[in-house]
Design a protein around this nucleic acid. Sequence first.
DNA 1: TGGTTCCACAT
DNA 2: CAGTTTGGAACCA
Length: 827
Amino acid sequence: MELQFYPYDFEYKVEEGTTFFYFYGRTKEGQKVAVKHHYQPFFYAAASNIDRKKFEERVLKLSLKTGIEPAQVVRLELVEKDLLGKKQEFYKVYANYPKAVPLLAKEIQAWGINCYEKDILYTHRYLRDHDIIPMRQVTAVGNFVRNQWMRVPVFVAESVTQRSQETLPVSDWRILAIDLETYAVKREIDPKNNPILMAGLYGAGKDGREFRKVITWKNAALPEYVEIVADEAALLQRMKEVILEYSPDILTGYFTDGFDFPYLQARAEKHKVRFDLGVDYSEIIVNQSSFGDKESKIKGYLHADMLKFIRNIFGKDLDVETYSLDAVSRELLGHQKHKVELEKLSQVWDNNPEKLAEFCAYNLHDSFLAYRLCEKLLPDMMEFTSIVGLPASDVIRMRFSKLVESYILKRATEFTAVAPNKPENTEISRRREESIQGAFVFEPVPGLYKDIVVFDFRSLYPTIISAHNLGPEGLKCSCCADKIKSHVPGKEEYWFCSREKKFLPAILEDLIFRRAEIKKQIKQAKARKEDTALLEARSYSLKILANSFYGYLGFYAARWYSLESAASTTAYARNYITTTISKAQQKGFKVVYADTDSCFLLLEGKTMEEATAFMEEINKTLPGQMELELEGNYPKGIFVGLKGRDQQSVGAKKKYALLRKDGTLKITGFETVRRNWSLLAKEVQEKVLELVLQEKVEEGLKYVKETIKELRSGKVALDKLIMKTQITRELSSYSSFAPHVKVAQEMKERGLNIDAGTIISFIIVKGKGLIRDRAKIPDDVAAGEYDAEYYVDHQLIPAVASIFAVLGYNEEEVFKDSSQTGLGKYF
DNA sequence: TGGTTCCACAT
DNA sequence: CAGTTTGGAACCA
């Protein structure tokens, strides 16, 4: 019979010597299933320049002792494959089970024969070789078999194919979010001694309404969604039942990899409760690497720890200070966490259970936020999954380099390419020593400019790599060696094949092309007022994957490492931007600034038509998918001087502000966002930039003077004067006492818990002596007690001095005023 | 300024 | 053929 289903979790099992790949998924009707399919593991061994007869005899006799059964070669096949651009013959060496692969390969390498793809995970290999994309419809031919080892029906497949690319809509996946609150005095997280107090679960009910539940074990008057059980062991038991009954495809949460699931595992073990949620009745599996991150797995589910996906992949474009659930939800959902004093939970639990309700609400709300994040980002997770072709659980936990490499590996099959091996440790150290020249940045002359037109190269690095065929395969190719006309600009020693499009640039070109197609679709969909969330997700995935190729080529641990290619990418980029600059200058445009892929021109009486004509002209000369685009045109812009240098001549790079036509500002590089600046300094800096850009310089000066007056009058609201600095280690280990350290000590003396990570807020007040002795906790500062002169000298003036300096005002000329001392005397 | 150390996130 | 060892901010000399 035929079975159609949507798989989302994968593993393999060796059963009586036969290796089976296992799919776990669900049918359209919502029935969870397991599908098993036999597939023989293998790797490659170089077949060139060896005595093949002798090799075959020897290799087929191999039998390496291991803990399980001896590692043996099942059979050999001779194949032709492409290794870094060179066609060669390889043996495809089939092993008797997956873990035999590295053992056999190591032995054969010891004979002096290179082996390849010996560290490709079996489950990943299976998916790639069968061209199966997780979470999309799969058709298996075979039969259901009786079993008692699985919680779900088991189907034994003779064949498995993906005929359709169809997937389920977001609303059809059953998602359940979990969140735990634990007993924790002084933020001490201790799964050995501290119990789980409550477990929040949030999902969608089968009736379409919300599914909300909090399980706790304290008898108190609590809201209707709270279920009270006898003790912690009962909580665990009940939680398991609820999850099984809900039967989610996706289990989600926030930092569930490192906190909730390991905690559940530890407490279940302590109470001897079998928390066997796994589809095969297995318990939670926590993989802890000797360093850093944990990963938690529950067999038969897609465990999506939203923190992992956001931190590793999705959050790179996000404007958040930390990846805390609070900050991320605020940014992505417009919701924040409920505000409760979590430190008091343990105390309330012990002494005032009647106050537990607000903690239950908090608990449920956290799981609600995780659910919403999962729902919102599911299209993105699925897109990365489909481009890379690996399980979503792996994809969301990958760093960029791994993501790129997985995409390359997926495409390698089509190009019959064999993957180069990962570098050895010595090679890694060697590579880590190397570095390349980066981007070109045009040093601006400080000043206030008008009518600035900004052009930039769309996806500069990816399009260069694709257009110039950069990559290890085409580097210094022998076919083009005799006619080296087109070497890399400024690097006579490098050239890349011009006869044949090579593997890496070809698959990168695909990504860029596919993204361009999707962008067109987005435009059309928007015109029809359709929802574009899915398309945006695809476009975003393709974009960051394409952008990561350059970094990958220069990444020390990359299989397709090619520092020459990375260096050539920036060399071409420098050449394109400098060429664009000089061509603009030849046309009579003044160039004020340029950075990596962008170029800022002044119209100076010329028209926008002339500027775009210039752009068109450049575009005619560009190869492949390269394109110069109009980023925008701005009525005004300011570039400021470098601190401590001649403020009139040397401009700071990557620091400027532009005024848009609609009056809004585009501020880059200024300190306005840093938390160790007071809100006052940020506000004043922004306001002054705005006034100056609107040519209201006098008004700007006046504004500063008024602000200073206000400061001195003691009327400025205290919350605008708070400065924040993070405590980064154990308080007692500080040997120098910056203001925030001193405040932290004071807070600790009052019984507040201060440890690494706490952000200390403080205000500097009037008085004698060192600054640090005048730093106070904001709550202790009386209105007007702050030290106005400190704020003038250390916050206000530094925030605006460079802006006024651009206009030729030095502090003395401009800020002349009263009888004050210090810099403030000029105001 | 550059080199080095420390910490992500959860209660 | 689940294992490797990150990177960015804050601090210090």
